[in-house]
Structure formats: C-alpha cells, structure tokens
Simulated scan of single mutants.
Amino acid sequence: MIKRPTQVVTSDLSFGESMEIDLGDITAELYHVESPHSEDCVCILIPQERVLFIGDAVGVDYYNNCFLDKEKLRSLITSIEGFDFDICVMGHAEPMSKDNILHIMHSLLERQENV
C-alpha cells in the first residue's frame, strides 16, 4: 500500500442558514442549527416524507470534556419543535417520533438542570 500525504481541500459548496436541494421527486432542506454536540450542526428535513435527520446533534461536546451546554440544548429543542416532521433519524439510534425525540431532549435538559 502506497502512503500519500493527507490533503485537505475546501468545500465546493457552502451555505448560510439554510439551503434546499432538489432531488427530483423530493426535496432536501438543510438547516444550520445550534447544537451542544458541535459548532457546525446541520439538520436535514425531507418534507415530502416528513422525516428529519439530526445526526449527533443531541450529543455532548467531546472536545470539551463531554460538556453538555444547556443553552445550546434549549436552542436545539426550539429548532426541532419548529420543524414539521413525523419521524426523526438520529446518528446512533432507531428512528423515532417527533414526540419521542422531544421527550428525550426535555428529559436530558431536566437532568442537566438538576446537576
């Protein structure tokens, strides 16, 4: 195996708050949201399917001693509440309902506030 030096290149595509991608019969709506997990979180809504992909948005900040920023979690909850979807797909869990993901997030916030 030939080892080559790693080359980092800039993205060909970037966007501000949101971007819409036409995929033919469906549309992917990308939204930057504040998240306790990272500074560059993007959620993807497929409105025709009523599905929201949030990846690891609910996770802790591994680069900051697994800190969970309550204000960023509150902001994420507000963003999630504002999306019109039925099914949420997280990075490391089975798909779940909007009510279920919001219940989990509110429970996590309550535990953090009691610490």
Score class of each variant (00 low, 15 high):
100 N>K: 15
13 L>V: 14
66 C>M: 07
10 T>N: 02
90 M>E: 07
74 R>C: 09
68 L>Q: 10
87 I>V: 15
26 I>Y: 07
25 D>A: 06
16 G>Y: 07
55 G>C: 00
42 V>N: 00
55 G>T: 01
30 L>K: 03
78 T>P: 06
33 V>M: 10
19 M>A: 10
36 P>C: 05
94 E>V: 01
65 N>D: 13
80 I>E: 11
69 D>F: 02
12 D>K: 12
18 S>C: 06
7 Q>I: 13
25 D>C: 01
79 S>T: 15
23 L>Y: 01
47 P>W: 09
93 A>K: 09
77 I>Y: 06
5 P>T: 15
46 I>W: 08
36 P>W: 03
84 D>N: 15
103 H>V: 04
18 S>Y: 03
93 A>Y: 02
52 L>W: 05
100 N>A: 15
33 V>S: 09
94 E>R: 07
86 D>K: 13
43 C>G: 03
16 G>I: 06
7 Q>D: 01
74 R>D: 09
32 H>C: 00
39 E>V: 04
46 I>N: 08
59 G>S: 11
67 F>L: 10
76 L>P: 03
12 D>P: 06
94 E>M: 03
81 E>W: 15
35 S>H: 01
61 D>L: 00
92 H>L: 00
42 V>L: 00
6 T>P: 09
39 E>H: 04
71 E>N: 08
114 N>Y: 10
6 T>F: 12
31 Y>K: 05
108 L>Q: 14
73 L>R: 09
95 P>H: 09
59 G>L: 03
70 K>V: 11
108 L>M: 14
78 T>F: 12
66 C>A: 07
92 H>S: 04
34 E>L: 08
48 Q>A: 11
76 L>R: 05
113 E>P: 06
73 L>S: 07
38 S>T: 05
21 I>S: 00
114 N>H: 15
95 P>N: 09
108 L>S: 13
98 K>G: 05
111 R>V: 13
1 M>D: 07
61 D>K: 03
88 C>K: 11
56 D>V: 02
107 S>R: 12
109 L>F: 12
114 N>Q: 15
22 D>R: 13
25 D>W: 00
87 I>K: 11
19 M>L: 14
18 S>W: 03
83 F>P: 07
98 K>E: 04
24 G>D: 08
70 K>M: 06
27 T>D: 04
63 Y>K: 13
52 L>R: 11
7 Q>L: 09
30 L>I: 01
27 T>R: 12
24 G>L: 09
94 E>F: 01
110 E>K: 14
